[in-house]
Nucleic acid binder design. Structure first.
Lengths: 350, 350
DNA sequence: TTGAAAGCGCTAACAA
DNA sequence: TTGTTAGCGCTTTCAA
């Protein structure tokens, strides 16, 4: 048994047989008595006796053995790029809050956005017989891994970004309405030249948000909307992209930036600081996601709040449902978003 | 098999027997050939044949079955208060970075600081036969759970906060040197009246840091060091504690605050903002931990950097080592810390 | 309502 | 070097 010391001080973990012996029944009966689904097949008196014996011995069922028998590990693999990106913890908590009361456990894996690591993580979780996957990988298009998973009839739900042509379900926030709200807010503040600092276009969400941005600007008379693409969804990429914008057009150029996400917005904020520009006086900035502590940035960030925890819970719900029914459809669940106005946006000066 | 659809479209997952059949050997040989530790017991030719067969069939070993047989789950339970507290993700990544290449997987559980949830998480992880625990719970003193775990000979390593009188190993940052560096920095800036906003004193680290603060102030001539206790290690608690300080002593009082951690510091920052006070002009603030994005706060936070990822990796290393040797000693590993000076500290005005 | 027995997939002790 | 065999602890038919 796992916790037995090498000095052999302790005995083995108590098994279902020990309980059976103490309760004077067969282990099969113990199994039935201790399982809520089969409890009704056992006489009430026996159930009571078995439970007392189990408690007395401190019996803890061995999930491994059960899983081996039932072919259900009661685990879910969760693959994300990077846990230290504050976007993900709320999603994961949402997932676990849904899974835990239902007896499931999440197995987490970080990929840092690398193909090879992602494949390795997938394989490693497959070895552990996870019953399905929740994928919040930052990857684009038709990843090989998704194709393989789908062909092997692996259950999976995507979060935030879709699976391209692979028909896996998707839970995501309402990108277009969020971007539209950001643009409207800026236009109301008098901004007429707005820049969208988009994430890499090979990410489906970046594309959707950029299109929504262009559409929202086009719908407003006299508003110029430009789009540039950042190299990654990171603070560093946001900063260097903004550096380039500032050095290209000193004085003229946009008076407001809608960033593809909060990390990019943070990079913009840093870039403004290093150039001695004030936010929002010289430049208004809007983020996306409302990640934790966005309200404590310098200045507090106006951003689009996405219900991350709910998205996580929803993805877990869909996955468990699909596992149970044995079916999988490419439905897309779109969660409503809302604009949170803080201090990084203000009236246009020009 | 887990991924088989209920419509029965797919066959069962390939087992070691399938590989044995294809390679024309016994499954025992396959097991030996595929396990690096026993590979040498098999002829090179056979190993090659087995591996080819395994690859051809897409064979994935069943970790459950292996664990059941070996009584080693190759998993580690990690219990933390809250994943969305940015203090923890770097620790967890450090843990996983150490575990993964060694074939171990971390099972994560959040307690939100609740006793009952902590016990439930512990039990749930015990059911999953984790080989040991890494505990970064925010709990104090001699928790019942720790006593139980120790009596059951469960392997565990504490991170950040110790286990009280229970002799579990501990990996932590150098609290006193960090606090001393913060105080010295403030004194050099001319501050002579400094406040320490400590975390709850029932946390061992809070106590250590408060004592270090008092000692550091006493070592400086003409420096007054006061300590107050926050109700929790949270932004809200920091804010309300600072609110109280400000309303009590308008005009006089401390010119600098050393907070028990970054979250408390953040609360102080918010409190200052709501009172129309400028940081650092009216009040300098120092945090502790250098959590992600501390540099993006309003203003960027001067804080003590703790090597969180390294601490995580170190705790994982100790745990695996203890599991392997079957021994457990109450050693304490203290990681060096460093002061990161940003914009939340400046010269004293008074 | 309960007992008996088989077997999930794997490893390891023992034989050959 | 390889095969044989016996379980790890559990669930679940089938019988009684």
């Amino acid at each position: 048994m796992a916790f037995q010391r090498s000095d052999g001080k302790l005995g083995k973990r108590t098994t279902i047989d020990d309980v059976a012996k103490l309760a004077n029944v067969h282990k099969g009966t113990v199994s039935r008595a201790l399982n809520s689904r089969t409890e009704s097949q056992v006489s009430q008196e026996t159930v009571k006796r078995v439970k007392r014996a189990a408690h007395q011995l401190g019996y803890v069922p061995n999930v491994m053995a059960r899983s081996l028998r039932t072919s259900l590990s009661m685990t879910v693999g969760v693959i994300i790029p990077d846990l230290t990106n504050p976007f993900f913890p709320p999603i994961i908590r949402g997932i676990e809050n849904y899974l835990q009361p239902r007896g499931y456990t999440a197995l987490l894996a970080n990929t840092d956005g690398h193909d090879a690591i992602e494949v390795a993580a997938f394989e490693s979780l497959m070895e552990r017989s996870v019953d399905g996957f929740i994928l919040a990988t930052g990857r684009h298009g038709d990843q090989e891994i998704l194709k393989q998973a789908y062909e092997r009839n692996v259950f999976a739900v995507m979060v935030n970004r879709g699976a391209g042509s692979i028909p896996y379900p998707l839970v995501t926030g309402n990108d277009s309405s969020g971007i539209a709200a950001a643009v409207n807010h800026l236009v109301e503040l008098g901004h007429r030249d707005v820049l969208h600092l988009a994430g890499p276009f090979n990410l489906s969400t970046s594309q959707v948000r950029a299109d929504a941005f262009t559409a929202a600007c086009a719908a407003k008379k006299g508003v110029r909307g430009r789009v540039i693409e950042a190299g990654a969804l990171s603070v560093a990429a946001g900063q260097s992209a903004m550096d380039a914008v500032i050095s290209r057009q000193a004085g003229s150029g946009p008076t407001a930036v809608v960033a593809g996400n909060d990390l990019l917005a943070l990079g913009v904020l840093r870039s403004l600081r290093t150039h001695g520009l004030n936010c929002p006086d010289d430049m208004s900035v809007v983020g996306f996601n409302d990640m934790p502590f966005a309200e404590d940035f310098s200045p507090p960030l106006t951003t689009v709040r996405v219900p991350l925890s709910e998205m996580g819970a929803e993805s877990a719900r869909m996955l468990l449902q699909n596992i149970q029914t044995g079916s999988q459809e490419a439905v897309t669940l779109i969660q409503p978003v809302s604009l949170i106005v803080r201090s990084s946006t203000g009236p246009a000066k020009r």
